[in-house]
């Protein structure tokens, strides 16, 4: 263990709420891009939601797409600039509700891009509405009595949706604890590597706390992740270098 310095790619303080997992994910991603010497060639595609706050503070090239369409934009970029490292960075509402089709079809075509989906089970930027990933019974501003799966469906599990697809890499990590953050970095590195080696589409879903809209303390949010969220969204690597694992 040597020094731990904040990556230079984080050019300004982030704009997220206290305890928001995006800050941690931003830092881990910046570390990976710096360690792999990809910052100069990286182009990120964000859309709409809290994730897009990072385009002022995370020093890579960015394109901001319409809500949900980041994957389609990333495909367009990568197809004309295959020499660049192209990634999407989106929340769960953005990528899995309005953008489900674009997210899935990028994987169906095994586009040589890397997708990061931050799953905090809620629409953060708009003030805490129900997301496709909200848990049964979860109280949100649009499910004040708790999410009713008979009305809104069970939590959408993007890993299960993509497991049958011929993609290069598929993993779900978490920022719910120190150990999980260390693992997450390995997953991100693996997903990025798959693109650099031309193997194709990689997706890392990242479980992340939203203490503000969950209306919880940080401790309460971390406990909720460990006790409840992970039951619906188990972590691990599900496809590695195109090979399906039994994680």
């Amino acid at each position: 263990m040597t020094e731990k310095r904040i990556p230079k790619t984080l050019v300004e303080d982030n704009k997220f709420c206290p305890g928001c997992g995006h800050g941690i994910i931003n830092r881990v991603l910046a570390e990976v891009l710096e360690e792999m010497e990809l910052v100069d060639m990286a182009i990120g595609s964000v859309a709409v939601g809290c994730a897009c706050l990072m385009i002022d503070t995370f020093g890579t090239d960015w394109v901001q797409a319409a809500h949900g369409r980041a994957a389609a934009v990333a495909c367009g970029i990568k197809r004309v600039r295959p020499e660049n490292f192209v990634f999407t960075y989106q929340g769960d509402g953005d990528s899995l509700a309005i953008g489900f089709s674009e997210t899935m079809y990028a994987a169906v075509r095994n586009e040589n891009i890397t997708a990061f989906i931050v799953n905090n089970g809620i629409f953060g930027m708009t003030g805490g509405q129900m997301a496709p990933t909200s848990l049964p019974g979860q109280r949100t501003t649009t499910s004040p009595a708790g999410k009713d799966p008979s009305l809104a469906g069970q939590p959408l599990n993007i890993i299960n949706q993509m497991r049958q697809l011929p993609i290069a890499y598929l993993a779900r990590g978490s920022v719910g604890s120190f150990k999980e953050i260390i693992k997450l970095k390995k997953y991100i590195k693996a997903a990025v590597t798959n693109q650099i080696e031309g193997k194709g589409y990689g997706l890392v879903e990242i479980l992340s706390p939203c203490p503000t809209n969950w209306k919880m303390t940080m401790r309460g949010a971390l406990d909720h992740m460990g006790d409840n969220v992970k039951n619906f969204f188990p972590t691990g690597e599900f496809i590695k270098e195109g090979v399906h694992t039994d994680a």
Partner: peptide
């Protein structure tokens, strides 16, 4: 929807 956003990406590049 996807087509026009692919165009957005390619044009941005």
């Amino acid at each position: 929807l996807a087509g026009v956003n692919m165009v957005y990406g390619a044009a941005a590049a």
